[in-house]
């Protein structure tokens, strides 16, 4: 038994180092070295922190999206939720003259409600996949934003509101502190609680989960509602950074977010993946984007790179698996022959 334990430990150690997350860390370091060699401003800490601020807003959605994709679902409506909650916040401050604090709370509430509606629709109509439901609500939510604001911009927020996106606590950007807190909470929720375990169970086998007495509908609704809420949070920080909002704000964010999660090793077929991987890959893509900006590549290049990155990061494990299977079979055959 003791021997077996030892074996297990070695195996665990091995498993620990042969993880996708380490590949991500190496990639991340590589990108940073390249960036630093391009730009002299990059290598100091405060420069790095500033770079981080440019992409952290969407990283807030990455956290709940990990839950969604582990469930085996997908939510493509997040960018529209950001737009709608941001627009409603701006309008209720500027046109309805609500206090900014109240407008901000309204922003979070709108995000949460949008997520809740997604969840309810998906649970209520089991025949509809999350893709088709969120594709439809994506159009609707942004459509409502257009109805409210037409093609106008709305800004003029109070001075203190810009603190969210631009402010510092000591020498650390405020947004980083908030993100760190959220990241810790979501990691613990996924890996250390019954809720997280249920999400993994449902992603692997929803029928067996239902038969095991898991309240699958409730959990699905909570996950989508959380995604809506965090989209609201993103709306706050993004609007603060931009200084104003438009109905087309955050267009295409869903792609970035899904790319970050999938690149982070969360399998789109559900049931597999870790929070830390998605967080690392959020930084990875963010830094990559920042670095491309440094070398003055046309901003559309990033679209191509992220698109290809998304495709290849999902494909590599597939290909690896096929190769593994093939070599194993060959080995087995070779062994048989030598017998």
């Amino acid at each position: 038994m003791a021997h077996q334990n030892n074996d297990n430990k070695i195996l665990k150690l091995k498993n620990f180092f042969f993880q996708w997350e380490w590949v991500l860390v190496l990639l991340f370091i590589a990108i940073n070295i390249i960036n630093a060699s391009i730009s002299p401003y990059y290598s100091n800490i405060s420069g790095l922190l500033d770079a981080t601020m440019t992409f952290l807003d969407k990283a807030f959605i990455v956290l709940p999206m990990v839950f969604v994709i582990i469930l085996g679902d997908i939510d493509v409506s997040v960018s529209s939720i950001v737009a709608l909650s941001s627009v409603i916040m701006a309008v209720s401050y500027n046109d309805l003259h609500l206090p900014m604090e109240l407008a901000m709370i309204l922003c979070l509430i709108v995000g949460t409600l949008c997520g809740l509606l997604n969840g309810l629709l998906i649970v209520k109509f089991k025949e509809l996949s999350a893709v088709i439901v969120t594709v439809s609500t994506q159009i609707i939510y942004r459509g409502i934003a257009y109805i409210i604001l037409k093609d106008q911009a709305s800004g003029n927020f109070p001075q203190w509101f810009s603190f969210l996106g631009w402010g510092y606590v000591g020498r650390i950007p405020f947004i980083i502190i908030v993100f760190a807190i959220c990241a810790v909470i979501f990691s613990l929720l996924l890996h250390k609680t019954t809720f997280g375990r249920y999400v993994y169970a449902m992603g692997n086998n929803i029928t067996a989960s239902r038969f095991s007495g898991i309240q699958v509908d409730k959990i699905k609704i909570i996950v989508f509602t959380l995604t809506g809420f965090m989209s609201g949070v993103t709306a706050l920080f993004l609007t603060s950074r931009m200084g104003s909002t438009r109905p087309n704000i955050a267009l295409g964010y869903e792609l970035d977010v899904i790319a970050m999660v999938v690149l982070g090793g969360v399998s789109t077929s559900g049931g597999k993946g870790k929070m830390i991987g998605a967080i690392i890959s959020a930084f990875l893509i963010g830094m990559l984007r920042y670095g491309l900006g440094l070398v003055n590549l046309p901003s559309q290049t990033i679209l191509v790179i992220i698109g290809l990155l998304l495709v290849f990061s999902v494909m590599i494990p597939n290909v690896r698996l096929t190769i593994k299977k093939a070599t194993k079979q060959n080995l087995a055959m070779a062994n048989d022959k030598s017998d």
Partner: peptide, 27 residues
Amino acid sequence: LLISKGKLPPIIASLGMMNAYRGLTFI
């Protein structure tokens, strides 16, 4: 090819290439 040989889920393959093609158009 990505979907049949690479075994990618269609939503991922087409979402990724959607951006790649869009970027290419701009470039």
